[in-house]
Amino acid sequence: MNSFATLLMRDLRLAARSGGGAALALSFFALVATLVPLGVGADLKLLARVAGGVLWVAAVLSALLSLDRLFQGDYEDGSLEVIALSPLALEAVALAKILAHWLSTGLPLTLLSPLLALLFNLDVAPSLTLFLSLLIGTPAVSAVGAIGASLTLSLKRGGLILPLIILPLLAPVVIFGAGAVALVLDGMDGIGALALLAAFSFGAVLLSPFAAAASVRLNLGG
């Protein structure tokens, strides 16, 4: 457990110090959200209607930005091999990396979302639902993303192929996340959608370390 925490802290520190991972993702998130009204018009009713979907898509894309470096940096400088040799199981290493990625992108995005929801004219209840859905759903983005990142870690242009691999797999997250907000906007209860989202997220976080570890192993030539 101790080495798990060490690895987690190391990755968080790396994310914070190498070009500010969180700040970058946050600015991207806010920028996409700013461009949307410029594209679809400033009609506040329309903006409230599309806010859930737009902010969810923007969140997924922002999380994607730093995803291709999840294993790649460690692979290139050789530290991934050292980490793989440590007593910590590779599955736990993958989980630590997923957690670090979520703490440095998913969580800050979630915390910023109420502010952006305000700009999109969302009321308190749908805004809270959006916040909760991001809180529940973004771990799944990091987890599924980790599979893609580990599969493409040896590729020079992995960043190009990564979205093609994982975005279709993330469709349920966007559907349930934005769906919960839409339900609340329609005066219904978003709990069902949030529960489905939680189920997906739980499954993804539980299973993807195994897939990611398997593909790290094959890339290390094992």
Binding site: L151, L169, P172, I175, F200, L207, A211, A214, L218, N219
Partner: peptide
């Protein structure tokens, strides 16, 4: 790598189908 991706997809496709139907 392709085999791992194919299996991840196989697990995910029914979920995608369900979510899209939902």
């Amino acid at each position: 790598a392709a085999a791992i991706l194919a299996l991840v997809g196989a697990v995910n496709i029914p979920i995608i189908k369900f979510s899209v139907e939902w």
